[in-house]
């Protein structure tokens, strides 16, 4: 008799990939597995649709569902909280051949994940400006993403269904995303500001005297609540969805 671990591994294989080992173990016959397979597909597709509404609208339901299932098979949710799942969809879409005709799709997914993660990040008080010291530690809601398309404008146009005046030209862009007082803010940064921001999490001292513009940016980040208290001297880490 198979162990519980063997039964669960075989069932997972049957439900996600159509493996056949578990079929012989079902009293009612293998067709009943499709009830669970259908539920799993609907649950996983719905979770991604909630997190990535603009991606869903850009490609339409049929494409989105197919892409979501391909993603779920390749990068299934690692734990029982589906809000944690989807951070690698942007990277997946970059290599997903059927999405190639929509070159900005992955970058839109990158922005939507940053916005979703910011909206639902843990409630942790932002760092008091007076306690700021390098390296800074990003607030759980903060991420800095690098994209190659005007994804803020694309996302806004798609969600509002208003494409008037939208220009879609490729060029490197950086966006700081975080939540303050319940609202998610997306701030565009130029290349230099993005590099300076990233350095705040990585260095324990400035290699050169910061320019007035850099100091103003640091003050802006502090006021916007982009940092959290650094616990017992540990150095900060950028969140895993940062570029």
């Amino acid at each position: 008799m198979p162990t519980l671990r063997e039964i669960q591994a075989a069932m997972a294989g049957a439900l996600l990939h159509g493996d056949r080992q578990a079929e012989a173990w079902i009293v009612e016959g293998p067709e009943r597995l499709s009830i669970h397979r259908n539920t799993i597909e609907q649950v996983l597709i719905s979770a991604l649709r909630l997190t990535f509404p603009a991606v869903g609208r850009l490609v339409g339901d049929a494409f989105f569902e197919a892409a979501a299932l391909a993603f779920a098979r390749r990068h299934p949710p690692p734990g029982g909280c589906l809000n944690d799942w989807g951070g690698s969809l942007a990277g997946f879409l970059e290599r997903f051949a059927p999405a190639a005709p929509v070159p900005y799709l992955a970058d839109v997914a990158r922005l939507e994940w940053a916005v979703f993660a910011a909206a639902s990040a843990a409630d942790i008080p932002p760092l008091e400006p007076a306690r700021a010291a390098l390296p800074l530690r990003p607030h759980p809601s903060f991420s800095l993403i690098a994209v190659n398309w005007p994804v803020q404008a694309i996302r806004g146009a798609v969600l509002a269904e208003d494409f008037h005046g939208l220009r879609v030209d490729p060029a490197p862009r950086w966006l700081a995303v975080h939540r303050l007082a319940g609202e998610v803010a997306v701030r565009p940064l130029d290349a230099e500001a993005a590099a300076f921001t990233r350095s705040l999490f990585e260095t324990d001292r400035f290699t050169a005297e910061p320019s007035p513009a850099h100091l103003a940016l640091l003050a802006e980040h502090l006021a916007a609540g982009c940092f959290q208290e650094t616990s017992d001297g540990c150095s900060g880490e950028t969140s895993d969805h940062s570029a």
Binding site: Q8, I40, P77, G80
Partner: peptide, 25 residues
């Protein structure tokens, strides 16, 4: 029920075999 095997969350409440081993787990 169970939903996680080998570090993968399956998103459904899946049936257990009604065995002494599963009961102990």
């Amino acid at each position: 029920s169970w939903s996680i095997a080998d570090g993968v969350y399956l998103g459904d409440l899946l049936p257990l075999p009604m065995t002494e081993e599963a009961l102990a787990v």
